[in-house]
């Protein structure tokens, strides 16, 4: 297995949990599985918020008109085989640093409404989508946050056209190497 690209979207924030150790462990684990790994530290990249203008659907189909790195990142995402969302768990959701990227991925879908498995979603624009692994990181023993985070993964999975899975790693309780190995096991 060669040339399989994994893109880590690192949603570390200026305040709160540092993700450098966990990201290093993750990179090493992915390389062992023959992935070519690239990582984006999103807080260092200026990506403007989605403006909700739908230009990417009705004027420039498939392309966002905001001329910043967000455009390039969306292209990188659809051309990767694996995307890893690495994020502190923020009230049970993603960090704003990660979310600013996810808000910009709607050009990857078509605008139309279609019932899929009994719910309305947007149909796929592309033939193939990368697998997604969402890893939430917390230092709290708070089950409520974890439950909300896993529910979000479940909702995102319904709007994505490939495997979309993930878990929450508690850096106070879990061994990083073991936690990463468990998170990857059977998912990539």
């Amino acid at each position: 297995m060669a040339n399989i690209k994994a893109l880590i979207l690192n949603g570390e924030m200026d305040e709160g949990i540092a993700l450098s150790r966990i990201s290093q462990t993750l990179r090493e684990a992915l390389k062992e599985k023959n992935y070519i790994v690239e990582e984006k530290m999103l807080k260092e990249i200026d990506i403007k918020p989605c403006m909700g203008c739908y230009t990417c659907w009705i004027k420039t189909p498939g392309k966002c008109i905001i001329d910043d790195f967000g455009q390039e990142l969306v292209s990188e995402i659809i051309n990767s085989q694996l995307i890893v969302y690495l994020t502190p768990v923020v009230y049970g959701g993603y960090s704003p640093e990660l979310k600013k990227v996810l808000d910009r991925i709607i050009p990857l879908m078509l605008p139309f409404f279609e019932k899929i498995k009994g719910e309305v979603h947007h149909p796929k624009r592309y033939e193939n989508y990368p697998k997604v692994l969402a890893l939430g990181v917390t230092d709290k023993d708070n089950q409520e946050e974890t439950v909300i985070f896993k529910e979000l993964i479940g909702r995102n999975a319904l709007n994505w056209y490939n495997t979309f899975d993930g878990s929450v790693i508690n850096i106070r309780n879990d061994s990083l190497v073991t936690a990463i190995a468990e998170a990857l096991e059977g998912r990539i």
Binding site: M13, E15, P49, C50, G52, V90, Y91, G93, Y94, S95, P96, E97, K99, K100, L102, D103, I105, I106, L152, R155, N156, N159
Partner: peptide
């Protein structure tokens, strides 16, 4: 509004 199943990034930033 809901963006990608949850809050838009700038609303999460506001909560923080």
């Amino acid at each position: 509004p809901i963006y990608v199943d949850t809050l838009p990034s700038h609303v999460v930033r506001t909560l923080l």
